[in-house]
Write a protein that binds this DNA or RNA. Structure first.
Lengths: 183, 183
DNA sequence: TACCGACGCCTAATGACCCTAGGCAAATGA
DNA sequence: TCATTTGCCTAGGGTCATTAGGCGTCGGTA
């Protein structure tokens, strides 16, 4: 049948997006290929390994998406593009996104974090502040996306507007970092 | 032995805080009480039910913590107290906090959300904006806490400072909502 | 061409865990 | 006192993760 670790990982990632990360089981993936559970253990160490592979795959795709999104932009433009790409990926690939959030052992792909740092360079933040700024940005984006994914915004009020404003709020903070946020 | 749904739930919640929500299994809780798995089904419908009960318990405790924290405060003071109480609970009770985030079916305890609305009243936001503001606040707090819990901030740089600044950033956004965030 | 080993999938088996059905004994209330 | 409820148990079925070991196929290699 010609299975490979990559093929298995990709199928598992798709499954995760469809039924949620919790629905990704060795059995389910095996069923998808029409093979027995045990057969997958030739290609993947086990469920843990499989999840980590999904996370790694997702992190790569994610970075590949974010990079072009901010390329050639700066300041607010870059921030908005970054944020929209971020949320876009999370919505299009909820399972992959969830996999990325899992505690990272061998913190492989900090490419995303690097990208974030780069994008914030336009705001002129020196190193002690830059880390705080990155954390603020990641917190806001991840928090919003995570709450949205979990149905945390039942209020029917337009989520798009809330999103734009949340991003604008981060922009505001970044612009006034010096004066307003250095207690 | 005198088990009750409440006792079971409380033990499960404690277990969740110790070993993570994923470690909460009917078997583990049964073991904790020295009874057979099947015995728990007299008090709890099943694993799903148990998790929802943990979530409900947590939501109640959480609201009971947040209420007093903001009582008698307003504006930035209230915000900081609210945020610190929020993060404090999440850190002290990671399993309970995780349970709270699960997709809520019968959205029981929106007491927390109500509290948030009340606390933001001091910033004088009218209703279309209030919802966006609440979402921004929840996103930032949840995002930060969630990333922190998952070890997302490996950078050894002081997380406390980052936290204070994130909260300050939200404060800044709330204060300048009108001028800066209504595109 | 006949042999060899890697590869890819299989069967078999163990152990955790979720859950249902039905029993039994002690406490409870009429 | 007797019937009911309450609280835990035994039995048993199903899904999963994981390991151990087997067996056919294929690309070389002698």
């Amino acid at each position: 049948m010609g299975l490979t670790a990559d093929l298995v990982t990709r199928a598992a990632a798709d499954l995760a997006d469809e039924v949620g990360l919790a629905g990704v089981t060795v059995s389910a993936v095996a069923r998808h290929f029409g093979v027995k559970d045990a057969s997958l253990y030739s290609h993947v160490r086990g469920l843990r390994d499989l999840r980590q592979r999904i996370a790694l795959l997702a992190a790569t795709e994610f970075a590949d998406l974010l990079g072009p999104a901010v390329a050639g932009r700066a300041g607010r433009d870059a921030l908005v593009a970054f944020a929209d790409a971020y949320r876009g990926y999370a919505r299009a690939h909820p399972g992959r996104y969830a996999a990325m959030q899992e505690p990272v052992e061998a913190a492989g792909s900090h490419r995303g974090v690097d990208l974030t740092y780069g994008m914030l360079r336009g705001y002129g933040l020196a190193e002690p502040d830059a880390t705080d700024a990155v954390r603020l940005l990641r917190s806001t984006l991840h928090g919003f996306v995570d709450l949205e994914r979990r149905g945390g915004f039942n209020d029917p009020r337009d989520v798009e507007v809330s999103w734009r404003r949340a991003v604008a709020a981060v922009h505001l903070a970044l612009v006034h970092w010096r004066e307003a946020l250095s207690e």
